[in-house]
Protein backbone atom coordinates (compact mmCIF):
# COMPACT_ATOMS: atom_id res chain seq x y z
CA UNK A 1 0.00 0.00 0.00
CA UNK A 2 2.80 2.40 0.79
CA UNK A 3 3.71 2.55 -2.87
CA UNK A 4 0.28 3.86 -3.83
CA UNK A 5 1.52 7.39 -4.13
CA UNK A 6 -0.02 10.59 -5.45
CA UNK A 7 1.58 9.65 -8.79
CA UNK A 8 -0.50 6.48 -9.05
CA UNK A 9 -3.64 8.28 -8.00
CA UNK A 10 -3.07 10.92 -10.67
CA UNK A 11 -2.42 8.33 -13.40
CA UNK A 12 -5.63 6.52 -12.56
CA UNK A 13 -7.69 9.70 -12.43
CA UNK A 14 -6.32 11.07 -15.70
CA UNK A 15 -6.42 7.65 -17.36
CA UNK A 16 -10.05 6.99 -16.54
CA UNK A 17 -10.99 10.58 -17.36
CA UNK A 18 -9.46 10.04 -20.80
CA UNK A 19 -11.33 6.74 -21.25
CA UNK A 20 -14.70 8.00 -20.08
CA UNK A 21 -14.97 11.76 -20.73
CA UNK A 22 -15.54 11.48 -24.50
CA UNK A 23 -18.47 9.16 -23.93
CA UNK A 24 -19.86 11.30 -21.11
CA UNK A 25 -19.72 14.38 -23.34
CA UNK A 26 -21.48 12.43 -26.09
CA UNK A 27 -24.24 11.44 -23.67
CA UNK A 28 -24.65 15.02 -22.40
CA UNK A 29 -24.95 16.45 -25.90
CA UNK A 30 -27.58 13.88 -26.84
CA UNK A 31 -29.92 15.83 -24.52
CA UNK A 32 -29.14 19.12 -26.21
CA UNK A 33 -32.09 21.06 -27.60
CA UNK A 34 -30.08 22.65 -30.41
CA UNK A 35 -29.47 21.09 -33.81
CA UNK A 36 -25.99 22.59 -33.61
CA UNK A 37 -24.39 19.87 -31.61
CA UNK A 38 -21.78 22.08 -30.07
CA UNK A 39 -24.00 24.85 -28.76
CA UNK A 40 -25.88 24.09 -25.56
CA UNK A 41 -29.47 25.28 -25.84
CA UNK A 42 -31.16 23.59 -22.93
CA UNK A 43 -32.25 20.09 -21.96
CA UNK A 44 -34.43 18.15 -24.36
CA UNK A 45 -35.19 14.56 -25.26
CA UNK A 46 -36.46 15.45 -28.72
CA UNK A 47 -33.64 13.66 -30.56
CA UNK A 48 -34.72 10.39 -28.96
CA UNK A 49 -38.19 11.04 -30.30
CA UNK A 50 -36.79 11.77 -33.76
CA UNK A 51 -34.74 8.59 -33.58
CA UNK A 52 -37.74 6.39 -32.81
CA UNK A 53 -39.74 7.98 -35.62
CA UNK A 54 -36.93 7.37 -38.13
CA UNK A 55 -37.96 4.18 -39.88
CA UNK A 56 -34.55 3.74 -41.51
CA UNK A 57 -32.85 3.51 -38.12
CA UNK A 58 -35.43 1.09 -36.80
CA UNK A 59 -35.03 -1.12 -39.87
CA UNK A 60 -31.25 -1.03 -39.55
CA UNK A 61 -31.46 -1.92 -35.87
CA UNK A 62 -33.68 -4.90 -36.70
CA UNK A 63 -31.29 -6.12 -39.42
CA UNK A 64 -28.32 -5.74 -37.05
CA UNK A 65 -30.06 -7.68 -34.30
CA UNK A 66 -30.99 -10.53 -36.63
CA UNK A 67 -27.46 -10.75 -38.01
CA UNK A 68 -25.94 -10.67 -34.52
CA UNK A 69 -28.23 -13.35 -33.06
CA UNK A 70 -27.82 -15.78 -35.96
CA UNK A 71 -24.10 -15.27 -36.52
CA UNK A 72 -23.13 -15.42 -32.86
CA UNK A 73 -25.17 -18.56 -32.27
CA UNK A 74 -23.75 -20.42 -35.28
CA UNK A 75 -20.29 -19.12 -34.42
CA UNK A 76 -20.60 -20.43 -30.87
CA UNK A 77 -21.49 -23.93 -32.10
CA UNK A 78 -18.75 -23.99 -34.73
CA UNK A 79 -16.20 -22.32 -32.45
CA UNK A 80 -16.85 -24.79 -29.63
CA UNK A 81 -16.46 -27.67 -32.11
CA UNK A 82 -13.23 -26.16 -33.39
CA UNK A 83 -11.91 -25.67 -29.86
CA UNK A 84 -12.71 -29.30 -29.00
CA UNK A 85 -10.84 -30.39 -32.14
CA UNK A 86 -7.82 -28.20 -31.29
CA UNK A 87 -7.57 -29.36 -27.69
CA UNK A 88 -8.85 -32.96 -27.78
CA UNK A 89 -8.57 -34.46 -31.25
CA UNK A 90 -4.83 -35.14 -31.18
CA UNK A 91 -3.07 -35.50 -34.50
CA UNK A 92 -4.92 -35.62 -37.79
CA UNK A 93 -4.08 -34.82 -41.37
CA UNK A 94 -4.17 -31.06 -41.98
CA UNK A 95 -4.04 -30.04 -38.31
CA UNK A 96 -1.52 -27.26 -38.92
CA UNK A 97 -3.68 -25.74 -41.64
CA UNK A 98 -6.69 -26.01 -39.32
CA UNK A 99 -5.09 -24.14 -36.43
CA UNK A 100 -3.67 -21.63 -38.90
CA UNK A 101 -7.17 -20.94 -40.21
CA UNK A 102 -8.44 -20.47 -36.63
CA UNK A 103 -5.79 -17.93 -35.69
CA UNK A 104 -5.33 -16.06 -38.99
CA UNK A 105 -8.73 -14.30 -39.00
CA UNK A 106 -7.92 -12.83 -35.57
CA UNK A 107 -5.06 -10.78 -37.01
CA UNK A 108 -6.43 -10.31 -40.53
CA UNK A 109 -7.25 -6.66 -41.26
CA UNK A 110 -11.02 -6.26 -41.62
CA UNK A 111 -10.69 -4.66 -45.03
CA UNK A 112 -9.05 -7.83 -46.35
CA UNK A 113 -11.56 -10.21 -44.73
CA UNK A 114 -14.38 -8.11 -46.17
CA UNK A 115 -12.86 -7.84 -49.63
CA UNK A 116 -12.10 -11.57 -49.89
CA UNK A 117 -15.58 -12.65 -48.78
CA UNK A 118 -17.22 -10.20 -51.16
CA UNK A 119 -15.16 -11.57 -54.05
CA UNK A 120 -16.24 -15.10 -53.05
CA UNK A 121 -19.93 -14.17 -52.89
CA UNK A 122 -19.74 -12.49 -56.28
CA UNK A 123 -17.75 -15.42 -57.67
CA UNK A 124 -20.41 -17.98 -56.72
CA UNK A 125 -23.26 -15.62 -57.59
CA UNK A 126 -24.79 -15.41 -54.11
CA UNK A 127 -27.30 -12.57 -53.60
CA UNK A 128 -25.89 -10.26 -50.97
CA UNK A 129 -27.96 -9.34 -47.92
CA UNK A 130 -28.57 -10.50 -44.38
CA UNK A 131 -27.56 -14.05 -45.24
CA UNK A 132 -24.12 -13.13 -46.57
CA UNK A 133 -23.39 -10.84 -43.58
CA UNK A 134 -24.31 -13.73 -41.28
CA UNK A 135 -21.87 -16.01 -43.14
CA UNK A 136 -19.11 -13.40 -42.90
CA UNK A 137 -19.65 -12.61 -39.22
CA UNK A 138 -19.91 -16.29 -38.30
CA UNK A 139 -16.56 -16.96 -39.95
CA UNK A 140 -14.51 -14.46 -38.01
CA UNK A 141 -16.51 -14.73 -34.78
CA UNK A 142 -16.10 -18.53 -34.58
CA UNK A 143 -12.35 -18.00 -34.36
CA UNK A 144 -12.74 -15.72 -31.33
CA UNK A 145 -15.14 -18.21 -29.72
CA UNK A 146 -12.75 -21.09 -30.28
CA UNK A 147 -9.87 -19.19 -28.66
CA UNK A 148 -11.99 -18.39 -25.59
CA UNK A 149 -13.38 -21.92 -25.29
CA UNK A 150 -10.10 -23.73 -25.94
CA UNK A 151 -8.35 -21.87 -23.13
CA UNK A 152 -11.03 -23.22 -20.77
CA UNK A 153 -10.82 -26.72 -22.27
CA UNK A 154 -7.05 -26.92 -21.74
CA UNK A 155 -7.35 -25.96 -18.10
CA UNK A 156 -9.80 -28.62 -16.90
CA UNK A 157 -9.16 -32.21 -15.94
CA UNK A 158 -9.70 -34.58 -18.83
CA UNK A 159 -10.00 -37.48 -16.38
CA UNK A 160 -13.59 -36.31 -15.67
CA UNK A 161 -14.55 -37.02 -19.29
CA UNK A 162 -12.76 -40.36 -19.22
CA UNK A 163 -14.58 -41.32 -16.04
CA UNK A 164 -17.92 -40.57 -17.70
CA UNK A 165 -16.94 -42.75 -20.68
CA UNK A 166 -15.86 -45.57 -18.37
CA UNK A 167 -19.22 -45.37 -16.60
CA UNK A 168 -20.99 -46.02 -19.88
CA UNK A 169 -21.66 -42.61 -21.38
CA UNK A 170 -21.49 -42.22 -25.13
CA UNK A 171 -18.94 -39.55 -26.17
CA UNK A 172 -21.81 -37.17 -26.93
CA UNK A 173 -23.42 -37.79 -23.51
CA UNK A 174 -20.06 -37.26 -21.81
CA UNK A 175 -19.72 -33.96 -23.63
CA UNK A 176 -23.26 -32.84 -22.80
CA UNK A 177 -23.30 -34.00 -19.17
CA UNK A 178 -19.71 -33.38 -18.07
CA UNK A 179 -17.74 -31.16 -20.44
CA UNK A 180 -20.41 -28.67 -21.43
CA UNK A 181 -21.43 -27.66 -17.87
CA UNK A 182 -17.77 -27.11 -17.00
CA UNK A 183 -16.96 -25.02 -20.07
CA UNK A 184 -20.36 -23.27 -20.07
CA UNK A 185 -19.05 -19.92 -18.73
CA UNK A 186 -16.47 -19.81 -21.54
CA UNK A 187 -19.10 -20.76 -24.13
CA UNK A 188 -21.39 -17.99 -22.86
CA UNK A 189 -18.65 -15.38 -22.89
CA UNK A 190 -17.71 -16.60 -26.38
CA UNK A 191 -21.29 -16.04 -27.51
CA UNK A 192 -21.36 -12.57 -25.93
CA UNK A 193 -18.07 -11.70 -27.61
CA UNK A 194 -19.36 -12.92 -30.97
CA UNK A 195 -22.59 -10.99 -30.48
CA UNK A 196 -20.81 -7.70 -29.67
CA UNK A 197 -18.32 -8.15 -32.52
CA UNK A 198 -21.23 -8.58 -34.91
CA UNK A 199 -23.19 -5.60 -33.54
CA UNK A 200 -20.10 -3.48 -33.86
CA UNK A 201 -18.78 -4.44 -37.26
CA UNK A 202 -18.79 -1.81 -39.98
CA UNK A 203 -16.10 -2.81 -42.44
CA UNK A 204 -16.91 -6.47 -43.10
CA UNK A 205 -20.66 -5.76 -43.19
CA UNK A 206 -20.13 -2.93 -45.71
CA UNK A 207 -18.27 -5.26 -48.04
CA UNK A 208 -20.59 -8.24 -47.74
CA UNK A 209 -24.01 -6.58 -47.73
CA UNK A 210 -26.21 -5.77 -50.65
CA UNK A 211 -28.71 -2.97 -51.23
CA UNK A 212 -31.40 -4.89 -49.32
CA UNK A 213 -29.72 -4.93 -45.92
CA UNK A 214 -28.26 -1.94 -44.06
CA UNK A 215 -26.90 -2.57 -40.58
CA UNK A 216 -26.81 0.02 -37.82
CA UNK A 217 -23.03 0.63 -38.06
CA UNK A 218 -23.34 1.19 -41.82
CA UNK A 219 -26.18 3.64 -41.19
CA UNK A 220 -24.25 5.44 -38.42
CA UNK A 221 -21.11 5.63 -40.52
CA UNK A 222 -22.85 7.19 -43.50
CA UNK A 223 -24.65 9.65 -41.20
CA UNK A 224 -21.54 10.83 -39.33
CA UNK A 225 -19.20 11.03 -42.31
CA UNK A 226 -20.54 14.52 -42.88
CA UNK A 227 -20.23 15.57 -39.25
CA UNK A 228 -21.75 15.26 -35.81
CA UNK A 229 -25.48 14.65 -35.64
CA UNK A 230 -27.68 14.86 -32.51
CA UNK A 231 -29.73 11.85 -33.56
CA UNK A 232 -26.59 9.72 -33.65
CA UNK A 233 -25.67 11.05 -30.20
CA UNK A 234 -29.04 9.84 -28.93
CA UNK A 235 -28.55 6.45 -30.57
CA UNK A 236 -25.02 6.17 -29.15
CA UNK A 237 -26.30 7.01 -25.67
CA UNK A 238 -28.85 4.20 -25.90
CA UNK A 239 -26.18 1.75 -27.04
CA UNK A 240 -23.72 2.82 -24.32
CA UNK A 241 -26.49 2.48 -21.74
CA UNK A 242 -27.45 -1.03 -22.85
CA UNK A 243 -23.82 -2.21 -22.84
CA UNK A 244 -23.11 -0.70 -19.41
CA UNK A 245 -26.18 -2.30 -17.85
CA UNK A 246 -25.35 -5.62 -19.54
CA UNK A 247 -21.72 -5.72 -18.43
CA UNK A 248 -22.51 -4.69 -14.85
CA UNK A 249 -25.32 -7.25 -14.57
CA UNK A 250 -23.11 -9.98 -15.99
CA UNK A 251 -20.32 -9.20 -13.55
CA UNK A 252 -22.72 -9.13 -10.58
CA UNK A 253 -24.19 -12.48 -11.62
CA UNK A 254 -20.78 -14.07 -12.00
CA UNK A 255 -19.67 -12.62 -8.67
CA UNK A 256 -22.72 -14.08 -6.94
CA UNK A 257 -22.12 -17.43 -8.65
CA UNK A 258 -18.51 -17.41 -7.45
CA UNK A 259 -19.62 -16.66 -3.88
CA UNK A 260 -22.26 -19.43 -4.01
CA UNK A 261 -19.71 -21.88 -5.38
CA UNK A 262 -17.21 -21.02 -2.64
CA UNK A 263 -19.95 -21.58 -0.04
CA UNK A 264 -20.92 -24.96 -1.56
CA UNK A 265 -17.31 -26.04 -1.61
CA UNK A 266 -16.87 -25.10 2.03
CA UNK A 267 -20.06 -27.00 2.91
CA UNK A 268 -18.86 -30.03 0.94
CA UNK A 269 -15.51 -29.89 2.71
CA UNK A 270 -17.25 -29.91 6.08
CA UNK A 271 -19.45 -32.91 5.33
CA UNK A 272 -16.56 -34.88 3.86
Amino acid sequence: MKRFSWFNATSLTLGFAFLYLPMIILVIYSFNESKLVTVWAGFSTKWYGELFRDQEFLDAAWVTLQVAVFSSTIATVLGTMAATVLVRAGRFAGRTLFSGMIYAPLVMPEVITGLSLLLLFIGIGLDRGIFTIVLAHTTFAMCYVSVVVSSRLTSFDQALEEAALDLGCTPFQAFRLVTLPIIAPAVISGWLLAFTLSLDDLVIASFTTGPSATTLPIKIFSAVRLGVSPEINALSTLMIGIVTIGVITASLISKRAAVAQARDERAAARTA
Binding site: P22, L199, D200, L202, P217, F221, S236, V243, V247
Partner: peptide
Protein backbone atom coordinates in the same frame (compact mmCIF):
# COMPACT_ATOMS: atom_id res chain seq x y z
CA UNK B 1 -16.03 -1.77 -20.30
CA UNK B 2 -15.15 0.60 -23.19
CA UNK B 3 -14.06 -2.45 -25.17
CA UNK B 4 -17.63 -3.73 -25.13
CA UNK B 5 -19.02 -0.40 -26.35
CA UNK B 6 -19.16 0.12 -30.08
CA UNK B 7 -15.80 0.95 -31.63
CA UNK B 8 -17.53 3.19 -34.16
CA UNK B 9 -19.23 5.21 -31.41
CA UNK B 10 -15.99 5.61 -29.49
CA UNK B 11 -14.31 7.02 -32.60
CA UNK B 12 -17.32 9.18 -33.35
CA UNK B 13 -17.31 10.65 -29.81
CA UNK B 14 -14.06 12.44 -30.67
CA UNK B 15 -15.60 14.20 -33.67
CA UNK B 16 -17.70 16.38 -31.38
CA UNK B 17 -14.71 17.12 -29.17
Amino acid sequence: LPFWTSFLIRVYSWMGI
